[in-house]
Design a protein around this nucleic acid. Structure first.
Length: 855
RNA sequence: GCCGGUGUGGCGGAAUGGUAGACGCAGGGGAUUCAAAAUCCCCCGAUGGUGACAUCGUGCCGGUUCGAGUCCGGCCACCGGUACCA
């Protein structure tokens, strides 16, 4: 009987559906387990990266089911966002139709993968039932004082008269108009996430099952710092300004101050701008270009001497110039700094450009021959804060001290002398959620001339998006939709206007995990369900979400607790986090006539000896391992793989080879190899089923291999070492195939193999299980347990090193005492030869591991 | 720019500070076959040597250690994020 995945897979998927194997129902008699993969954006078709991500989650879900857990493994769609509007602009359709069509297609493509998902819980964030509950949350959060309205800077396209996303700004220009982008202030809604900065930071310590790198990135993002806030008094006032308030994390370098810099958006700059056209021109120049930190930081450092002078706080005769500088951001600190060129490379570059003084505050504690001071043309001296340095221009603390100690001493000194206060600041800014776009959840408020901003009444939710909109003009169609926009004020009934901004799609994805616990509830969550199912025991997703999505979700869980939608135990919603890598594929390109590259699909390229050729013989340039991207024609469609080899092959392949946290390169030969292996397993099972061999002396060895495999595969699955588990399964398969054990032992081995493979290749596993009359579905069968007694080895082979290099080996009983091992090792031929009759300087015996003889 | 990560054969990768290259792919050789497909077995880091074996080898430079792919310091390259891509 050959291996025919198409038949096997349809059969067992029907069996799981019928038995409702993956339907999640509250059941307090079992421990619950909530496993969640970050839900997909409905881009159109599933992508091999989706297959990898959801297969990983499915392995966990199925494994937990077989270890006696009540498993929740849901799926949904993160369905609002720009691509739907872009598609509507490009091809004239409607974002809603485009999105729901894509969802239908993707569900249809996902189902054949045989994922153990409770599909009855599926929703899309663009469902009015979902975003209506999100609007209810918004209103509750507004009532609870968690939301604010204030100005924020956006990218403004002066030709299209529209706000642009950062992605739509290319080299400082609007992606459609090509016009130079300007920065513009708009009144926007904000979640007051910065109020929770300290808690979000402190609580990172408790997230033991999160990757350390993600915790570190969040810590740096929140950016808690202690510094000094103080004022430079101005030599001559500028309008109402008699001082410039600055914040510094390095008050110990105050004696190295060389200039004061203010942001072009600083109130003082704005005042100067009003009556100085040169300053106005400079500030206008600074406001060109996008708003991203990257664009701001990478831009050429520009400064403008305002002519204003301020006094140094320690010496009123010491005057410093005040510059407006484009690299100073208004939203961090006070929007003003003092520059210390000797100890900051950016300030040093600035000082050299504008011919400002450079003065070292500290030098290396030990004289370094190669040290060149910044005064003498060396680079800025920026040692770590922990390093002890020698202060040549210090004013507080010891002469030799670490930066950290010096900062504390400087803050204390300044406070005692009336120069400013020690202040703790955070880099984290409030979360601006307003978007000037159609395809998002409407912000449920109404603007009334008399009452001001009035939240919509909850009974009027959802505030549903109107369908009759068009995208032929740039901008937000809600702005020009009178019947939707013009509504009576919910408070006084007078004519008023709806807010036409919609919510950032990050809002949608910041609580979907909670909604999955009760997807059809008439409130955002159902407390009983939330209490039972939360937290997510294992969350799986891309490292690209390490900061924003995960931080916003942590904030939202806290906000939902404060507004009564989640229990206190769920304020950290993800107990364990795993960040998986991408699936990549080589790009094949040739040079087109206009000099632009032309990209070719993998199917069009013949690979020979590491080079690739088109059908007409043209050689293509191969760019290895690039992120799959539609525009590069290197997207591998999993549907074709499933049709050709079956879902189990696709699942097996995406789990093998690469560790899950790393990117995996898709190769056609890899998929074929996976298929061959699964065919082999099927054939071995068929052969065993047809055999009738008596018990014999090979049985024990096979059973030992079996218990070793149980142990290794289990530990691989538990630690996300799926590739390691698969390597062991290859080994165990080969052991079964080569063994001459009797049918009974082999049956036990193959049934165990099927169980160990079941989380990865569930259809094949069910088939083998049924072949041998296994009870019920393998999906529900209890996970095999390794017998410790069968794992013990009697003798071990120890490598012998001479001076750290492997020269020989000896076999010794497992428990042999160290001194006897040493005696045996010294008697070894290679050791005797190396010693040449002398005695070793040292012998290191690591029991069960290694012997090292130092001669 | 800043923050975080990664770097090991022809390729994907394995290796609690303890035999570098498990397992898989590609390649080479063989068995089976009239022949092929399928399947099975063996070899497979580099250099030198018939061989036993020797030397070198985990991005680069340096350090700690009896012993470093692994730990520390400094570089280089690539990847992710950088608050309106999702």
């Amino acid at each position: 009987m050959p291996y025919t995945p198409s038949e096997i897979e349809a059969k067992w998927q029907a069996a799981w559906d019928k038995a409702e194997t993956f339907k999640a129902v509250r059941d307090t008699s079992k421990p619950k387990y909530y496993v969640l993969e970050m839900f997909p954006y409905p881009s159109g078709r599933i992508h091999i990266g989706h297959v990898r991500n959801y297969t990983m989650g499915d392995v966990i879900a199925r494994y937990k089911l077989s270890t006696g857990h009540n498993v929740l493994h849901p799926m949904g769609f993160d369905a609002f966002g720009m691509p739907a509007e872009n598609a509507a602009m490009a091809s004239g359709g409607h974002p809603k139709d485009w999105t729901y069509n894509n969802i239908d297609t993707m569900v249809e493509q996902m189902k054949p993968l045989g994922l153990g998902i409770d599909w009855s819980r599926m929703f899309a964030t663009c469902d009015p039932e979902y975003y209506g509950q999100q609007q209810a949350l918004f209103i509750d959060m507004l009532d609870a004082g968690l939301i604010d309205r204030k100005n924020a800077t956006v990218n403004w396209d002066p030709v299209d008269m529209t706000v642009l996303a950062n992605e739509q700004v290319i080299d400082g220009k609007g992606w459609r108009s090509g016009a130079e982008v300007e920065r513009k202030d708009l009144t926007q809604w904000f979640f007051k996430i910065s109020d929770m900065a300290d808690d979000l930071l402190e609580a990172l310590d408790g997230l033991d099952d999160w990757p350390a790198k993600v915790r570190l990135m969040q810590e740096n993002w929140i950016g808690k710092s202690r510094g000094l806030q103080f004022a430079f008094s101005m030599v001559e006032n500028a309008g109402a300004h008699d001082r410039v308030e600055v914040y510094t994390t390095r008050p110990d370098t105050l004696m190295g101050a060389s200039f004061v810099g203010i942001s072009p958006d600083h109130p003082l700059a704005k005042e100067l701008e009003a009556d100085n056209p040169d300053i106005a021109a400079f500030c206008a120049e600074c406001r060109k270009g996008g708003t991203t930190a990257e664009a701001l930081e990478k831009a050429e450092k520009l400064g403008f001497d305002t002519g204003l002078r301020v006094r140094h706080p320690f010496d009123t005769s010491w005057e410093l110039p005040v510059y407006i500088a484009n690299f100073i951001m208004m939203d961090y600190g006070t929007g003003a700094i003092f520059g210390c060129p000797a100890h900051d490379q950016r300030d040093l570059d600035f000082a050299r450009k504008y011919d400002l003084p450079v003065k070292s505050v500290y030098v290396p504690a030990m004289g370094e021959d190669t040290f060149i001071t910044p005064e003498d043309g060396g680079p800025a001296y920026v040692p770590s804060k922990e390093a002890v340095v020698h202060y040549v221009a210090g004013f507080a603390g010891a002469e030799a001290q670490s930066g950290a100690d010096a900062i504390n001493a400087a803050v204390d000194f300044c406070e005692a002398n009336g120069v400013g206060q020690g202040v703790t600041k955070f880099r984290l800014r409030d979360w601006g959620l307003s978007r000037q776009r159609y395809w998002g959840a409407p912000i449920p408020v109404v603007h009334c001339d008399d009452c001001g901003v009035v939240p919509e009444k909850k009974e009027n939710l959802p505030v549903e998006l109107p369908y009759d909109v068009s995208f032929d003009i740039p901008g937000n169609p809600l702005d020009r939709h009178p019947t939707w926009r013009d509504v009576p004020c919910p408070a006084c009934g007078k004519p008023a206007q709806r807010e036409t901004d919609t919510m950032d799609t990050f809002v949608d994805s910041s609580w979907y995990f909670a909604r999955f616990t009760a997807p059809h509830a008439s409130t955002p969550t159902d407390m009983a369900d939330a209490e039972y199912w939360m937290n997510v025991d294992q969350y799986i997703g891309g490292i690209e979400h390490a900061i924003l999505h995960l931080l916003y979700s942590r904030f939202f869980a806290r906000a939902m607790h404060k507004t009564g939608h989640l229990p206190a135990s769920a304020i950290e919603p993800f107990d364990a986090l795993f960040t998986q890598g991408m699936v990549t594929h080589a790009i094949y390109k040739t040079d087109g006539k206009d000099g632009r590259p032309v990209y070719h699909y993998p199917e069009e390229v013949d690979l020979r000896d590491g080079s690739g050729f088109l059908k007409d013989g043209t050689e293509v340039t191969i760019v290895p391992s690039a992120k799959m991207s539609k525009s590069k024609n290197n997207v591998v469609d999993p549907v074709a793989i499933i049709e050709q080899y079956g879902a189990d092959t696709a699942r097996w392949f995406v789990l093998s080879d690469s560790p899950p946290e790393r990117d995996v390169e898709w190769t056609a030969s890899g998929a074929e190899a996976a298929f061959k292996h699964l065919s082999r397993v099927h054939r071995i099972a068929t052969d065993i089923a047809a055999s009738d061999d008596a018990e014999n002396d090979a049985d024990e060895a096979l059973l030992r291999d079996m218990h070793k495999a149980i142990q290794d595969v289990t530990s691989g699955v538990e630690s996300f070492g799926f590739n390691a588990s698969i390597a062991k399964l290859y080994g165990f398969t080969a052991a079964i195939q080569k063994s001459r054990a009797g049918t009974q032992a082999k049956t036990m081995a193959i049934k165990t193999l099927a169980q160990l493979m079941a989380p990865m290749t569930p259809h094949l596993a069910e088939d083998i299980w049924a072949m041998f009359g296994g009870e019920g579905l393998i999906a529900n069968a209890p996970w095999p347990v390794a017998d410790e007694a069968m794992l013990v080895e009697d003798t071990v082979t120890l490598p012998i090193q001479i001076n750290g290099k492997r020269r020989s080996e000896i076999a010794v009983p497992k428990d042999m005492p160290k001194d006897e091992v040493e005696k045996l090792a010294l008697a070894d031929d290679a050791v005797v030869k190396a010693l040449e009759g002398g005695t070793p300087k040292k012998v290191i015996v690591v029991p069960g591991r290694i012997v090292n003889v130092v001669v």
